[in-house]
């Protein structure tokens, strides 16, 4: 099996400050990688670099494209990267309003990616949107409602449907459960786990919530000051942390 994503020495500076430095890892099909660390540790910078949304200073991000094998995402032309972003990739934002079109109906939100890659049959687009709303547990009757009328949890589920409708292979998620009630979080986590399994998705999930990564991620990277200080199987890193910072992080979690 070949890696879906191979990250080599990705480095990003903000002036003299380090955003992230010398990050390398491989992600295989079906794997979910968690990235944890406190605010400012560089996890979101790294995510944006990987997704081609932020130019890096150095490094390579090799992605196994459907059409032409391993390609360096950072060296791609903007149109190529844009195409990748609406076919093979998905990006789930922390705030649904950053990832949704709030003035477009739920169905239109889900259908946009399909139309962007050339779907031109209204009936089929609508059917796909209906199916996806059901998969993310939004009732079919809400298909023509705008996301502004949805609860936070529904908006986040809609964002997931909108992103997954074109069957991407790699999903970037930035704090996907942040800002949600714990009960809503649980439902979303379950949904994400199911989708990852059914669709064979790979995902990179940035969060500061260790409970979320334990339940969602197979593997874990711990970041501090822009560097990866520890990585491994999620349960191993959390239960037998090696680095002092990880030990501090794990021991700082409040027990319920």
């Amino acid at each position: 099996m070949t890696a879906l994503l191979r990250v080599e020495n990705v480095t990003k500076h903000y002036g003299t400050r380090i955003g992230c430095a010398e990050v390398s890892f491989e992600l295989y099909p079906g794997e979910v990688m968690g990235i944890v660390g406190e605010s400012g540790s560089g996890k979101t910078t790294l995510l944006n670099c990987l997704a081609g949304q932020l130019p890096c200073d150095a490094g390579r991000v090799m992605f196994d494209t459907k059409t032409s094998g391993l390609r360096d995402v950072l060296a791609m032309s903007a149109p190529e990267r844009r195409m990748l972003a609406r076919t093979d990739w998905a990006f789930v934002q922390q705030h649904p309003r950053d990832g949704l079109r709030m003035n477009v109906s739920a169905g239109g939100n889900v259908g946009e990616r399909l139309m962007a890659v050339g779907a031109r049959h209204y009936g089929e687009i609508r059917q796909a949107a209906t199916d996806w709303l059901a998969r993310v547990e939004i009732e079919a009757g809400r298909i023509d409602d705008r996301p502004t009328t949805f609860s936070g949890g529904m908006q986040q589920r809609l964002q997931i449907a909108r992103n997954l409708v074109t069957g991407p292979r790699l999903v970037f998620m930035d704090e996907p459960t942040g800002g949600l009630d714990v009960s809503v979080q649980a439902r979303l986590l379950d949904l994400l786990r199911g989708l990852v399994r059914e669709m064979g998705l790979s995902a990179i999930v940035v969060t500061h919530d260790l409970a979320v990564v334990r339940l969602l991620a197979d593997r874990l990277m711990v970041m501090k000051d822009g560097h990866v200080v520890e990585s491994g199987l999620t349960d191993q890193v959390l239960d037998d942390p090696q680095h002092g910072y990880t030990q501090l992080l794990v021991s700082s979690v409040l027990q319920v």
Binding site: A186, L189, D190, L215
Partner: peptide, 16 residues
């Protein structure tokens, strides 16, 4: 595929 584990603790996504 190979190795099963029954631990003393049940760790699951709530509400599943």
């Amino acid at each position: 595929d190979t190795l099963g584990y029954v631990s003393q603790f049940l760790r699951v996504v709530p509400r599943v």
